[in-house]
């Protein structure tokens, strides 16, 4: 067997392995592009719990729950501003920005949705309810391309689509066997939701029908996830301090990061989000920073 043949054989093997996700190093070469805030910026986040991205203006909005602030950063990770909506933010836990520049914020201390218009400096508060009057316990939120608002109700473990009057127009629930969802993502006209205790991802069509379930293996305590354009899933394992990647069929591919306090390590991370360039933002509550990763 010639050297050329061996090389060719090795190449074919490598291609097969990398397609099946068995070549860990190559697939998992994520590294920190920068941190929010940057180390020398003099800005300190006390308790970052979630992040939102303004794709249009290429900005990051980090929610600092302990300081009651939204902190914005530019596309290079530079600090822009900290904002507390005139003292209305006490324990914010999630934020989303509309295409018109307004902000939806979940204020946990009063369990209300805040609609903030920064230009007019106006804050309006809402408490969405079920038709029977039961309160929604707001946990996470997201906007689709039409600025429709989706929220996660932790009380029932279901995702809710709210209409323009903030009435519940659609419920995305996993049925009697689910332990309730802890996170959800909107991806190409579909909604994915994570049942953390069961380590299962549910896919819904927008009419609320479950169209797929993916049971994921090898996780300790998943708390958040993200989906990339290729359909791969990134699961944040809070206790293990890792991000675990699964193929679109739910097969585990590789994991990266690890538990610790140095840069590139996680300590009680809470949220995952892709930015406008496909960089992965990992919100690390314990280390007080957001790792922006690229590969």
């Amino acid at each position: 067997m010639s050297v050329k043949q061996i090389t060719l054989g090795f190449g074919v093997l490598l291609a097969i392995l990398s397609h099946s996700g068995l070549v860990l190093g190559a697939a998992g070469s994520w590294s920190t592009k920068y941190q929010l805030p940057q180390e020398d910026s003099g800005v300190r986040l006390e308790q970052p719990v979630s992040v939102a991205v303004d794709h249009q203006n290429q900005r990051y909005y980090v929610v600092d729950a302990a300081k009651g602030q939204l902190v914005s950063f530019d596309k290079a990770g530079g600090f822009l501003a900290a904002f507390n909506a005139g003292g209305e933010l006490q324990r914010p836990v999630a934020v989303a920005k509309t295409s018109g520049g307004s902000l939806w914020v979940i204020e946990r201390s009063i369990n209300k949705l805040l609609y903030i218009n920064p230009k007019q400096q106006k804050v309006r508060k809402f408490a969405p309810k079920y038709p029977d009057g039961t309160e929604v316990f707001l946990s996470r939120l997201a906007l689709d391309r039409q600025d429709r608002l989706f929220v996660l109700d932790r009380m029932k473990g279901a995702v809710l689509l709210l209409d323009d009057s903030l009435e519940i127009s659609q419920v995305y629930a996993g049925g009697s066997t689910t332990h309730g969802f802890v996170d959800f993502k909107l991806q190409q006209g579909e909604l994915w939701a994570l049942d953390a205790l069961d380590h299962t991802l549910y896919r819904f069509d927008l009419s609320g029908t479950v169209t797929k379930k993916l049971k994921l293996s090898g996780l300790e305590f998943p708390t958040a996830f993200e989906v990339d354009n290729a359909g791969s899933f990134y699961l944040l394992d809070r206790h293990a301090g890792t991000v675990v990647v699964y193929g679109m069929n739910g097969m585990r591919s590789y994991d990266f990061l690890g538990k610790g306090k140095w840069s590139g390590q996680l300590w009680n991370a809470t949220d995952l989000l892709f930015d406008w360039e496909g960089r992965l933002c990992v919100v690390d509550e314990g280390n007080g920073r957001v790792e922006v990763l690229t590969r």
Partner: peptide, 20 residues
Amino acid sequence: SLASFQVVHSHLGVGGTANA
């Protein structure tokens, strides 16, 4: 009791669709 869940990290939601 509801107020005790209005904190950053809470156990509300562990019951899924059933009683938490």
